[in-house]
């Protein structure tokens, strides 16, 4: 379980002026849960992801993983970034196995993300969606318990996104990983998550937490349902009135 207790974070800008980015953020993510964090651009969503990943120091408050303080990055929490984070000089198999604990399972994870026919291909030969799949396989091969996905579908076109949503949901259910998804896409957040945390403008604090009442597996027809649209409307209203 990931637990944030009164987490605040500020940094100094180029004029050495202190800027508060996050203020008193507290929430829990249960093991095997998929939560989304959404909020306006620049509110500090990525900063929050970086804090959970352990990349940033000097925070106030506490972030714990299964009761242990998070003070540094670790293989148990793997970040999947918006931009391409694959090593361009390694092929799919080498990228996935680079951080793998058990090299024998690498092919299994490549198969899980549907890239068994591309294991010898290099990143420049892959589409944006395929690169994301490799990133997911790499995180799984590293035996990460928590996947922190920082707007991973941002640069992808609609049809690829739709396919990836369903595949991610399947992989998530199969591996029972904890997923923290940073997003600005309300539809994506509702479609994928158990819960949605809405952040305020900077300094970001939690405005509201929505429970998503739909069971899994979900299908794209769900987006046309009245309940789905109602939740979408409520979240939009929350974001408009920040």
């Amino acid at each position: 379980m990931i637990e944030l207790i009164n987490v605040s974070y500020s940094y100094k800008d180029s004029m050495r002026k202190q800027f508060e980015v996050l203020k008193n953020i507290s929430f829990k993510v249960k093991n095997g849960e998929l939560i989304s964090i959404i909020g306006p651009s620049g509110c500090g969503k990525t900063t929050l992801a970086n804090l959970i990943a352990g990349y940033l120091k000097n925070k106030k408050g506490k972030i714990c993983e299964n009761g242990r303080d998070i003070i540094a990055p670790g293989k148990d929490r793997f970040v999947i970034n918006q931009e391409n984070d694959l090593f361009d000089w390694m092929n799919v198999e080498e990228n996935v196995s680079f951080f793998a604990d058990n090299k024998k399972k690498v092919l299994e994870y490549i198969k899980l993300v549907g890239l068994e026919n591309c294991k010898r291909k290099y990143p420049y030969e892959l589409s944006g969606g395929m690169k994301k799949r490799v990133s997911i396989a790499r995180a799984l091969a590293a035996n990460a318990e928590v996947l922190i996905m920082d707007e991973p579908f941002n640069s992808l076109d609609y049809s690829i996104k739709e396919k990836l949503y369903d595949d991610l949901a399947k992989i998530w259910k199969k591996t029972n990983k904890t997923i923290i998804l940073i997003s600005h896409d309300i539809e994506e957040a509702i479609y994928l998550s158990d819960r949605i945390i809405i952040l305020n403008n900077r300094p970001a604090s939690i405005k509201k937490i929505f429970n998503v009442p739909f069971s899994y597996p979900r299908n794209s027809g769900l987006k046309d349902s009245v309940r789905f649209m109602n939740i979408e409307k409520q979240i939009k209203e929350e974001l408009i009135h920040l």
Binding site: Y55, A72, P73, V79, E83, F99
Partner: peptide, 13 residues
């Protein structure tokens, strides 16, 4: 890129 540095830290390589 920062992402490579962060990945290396994560992987503790």
């Amino acid at each position: 890129p920062k992402v490579y540095i962060n990945l290396a830290k994560t992987g503790n390589i």
